[in-house]
Design a protein around this nucleic acid. Structure first.
Lengths: 221, 221
DNA sequence: GTCTATAATACGATAGAC
DNA sequence: GTCTATCGTATTATAGAC
């Protein structure tokens, strides 16, 4: 057995992982996403994560050295997903199409990945101890790049003059709200726990708000 | 001493509190707001709260039976503050004035009471274990009442047709974002820890977004 | 790789003197 | 009302057998 283990170790280059390793890491990360997104970092326990992963706690710690390491692995794996919808904004498109489809992508993301959104929200709310660097570098740079595109549209008179970075903040907050504050949304609307039927109305409202005209002195036109 | 204590107890009706009691409870709640809003319920410790209140932990627990009781006291004390800006919306006013001043009140609230906003956000994100009832009753009722006002404006053609409850969600999310996600806002804008200079630009953007026209096929008009 | 057993500690809460 | 000392428990992490 020791011989076989050495053989397998010899067969693969340093840093690679066996099939069972990848499977177990995936199971752990899936369970951890459930628990962390529901209870936050401090509210989560390794017991619950191990239980949801159908694994013993020491075995879980065989794959990740600590609770924090699992948390960081989840967050860093999330950052590219978070950036993806923003990257797609193109300078040569029509403002309405570009902003509109960006909003739809972000709202779809809240619909399909609410746990990821809540994990992210928890991290920011806690002061971004793990992803502060990401926010200050990659995200800041991408925002400046895309804000320049919006500023171009403003200069062309195709968009109202206001700080484009804050427009992005408004898109983030309104769309993520439907994932992060879904409990409040459902309670106020009188919906049951799993009911996500509000997303259609949300999309209509966001279209009117960002791409049309909600109200003005002369009516919405 | 026992005699004096009885005398003092007799002097005041049941439920009233001495001056020192009120002072200490206030000190505890102030410290607890700091710690809970920064670290969340599970991340907060009685040690830190007691330390920030310059008080021993057992003495703190003399005034509040448990950690949870402090948390609930903070939350329930917050609910009226949370509702206040919404209550002020009047049906006989102009839509632009009413919505506009509501947005300014909410944004001012994020500026002046960011800890309260983060405490609230943490509670919602955790599934609203303590204020679920409030959301389903008082808040739901008030939202329905104010949504009816907005619906009236829509019926009069003074506002674009879309679910008014979602318009309220959009106002909540965009304004509270500047308190709950202030770390992200500052990092993306390249501002220092205490810098709140972004609120002016935020107010301008929100004005354009909700009361003007951001973009449309024919330009922002 | 996976397990049982357990170490080590952090934390909420209580006891009891003053 | 306030304190020191401490209990009991939950939780992260490790030791060591298999």
């Amino acid at each position: 057995m020791t011989g076989n283990a050495k053989l397998r170790a010899a067969e693969k280059p340093t840093g690679s992982k066996t099939r069972i390793q990848k499977e177990n890491e995936t199971r752990i990360l899936r369970a951890a996403l459930d628990v962390f997104s529901e209870s936050g970092f401090h509210g989560a326990t390794l017991d619950r994560i191990a239980s949801e992963a159908s694994m013993s706690k020491p075995n879980l710690l065989y794959y990740f050295k600590s609770k924090e390491e699992i948390h960081i692995a989840l967050l860093t794996g999330l950052l590219d997903v978070w950036l993806a919808p923003l990257r797609e904004i193109r300078p040569d498109g029509d403002p309405v199409d570009e902003i509109g489809s960006y909003i739809r992508r972000k709202l779809e993301s809240s619909h399909s990945f609410p746990r990821e959104s809540r994990l992210f929200a928890n991290e920011i709310l806690a002061g971004a101890p793990h992803i502060g660097g990401f926010l200050q570098t990659e995200l800041k740079q991408l925002v400046e790049e895309k804000a320049a595109i919006l500023q171009g549209w403003i200069d062309q008179g195709r968009m109202a003059p206001c700080d484009p970075r804050h427009v992005l903040f408004a898109i983030w907050s309104t769309t993520q709200h439907y994932a992060d504050f879904s409990v409040q949304v459902r309670h106020v609307l009188g919906l049951g726990p799993g009911d996500k039927s509000y997303f259609d109305e949300a999309a209509r409202m966001l279209d009117t708000l960002f791409l049309g005209q909600l109200i003005s002195r002369d009516g919405p036109g």
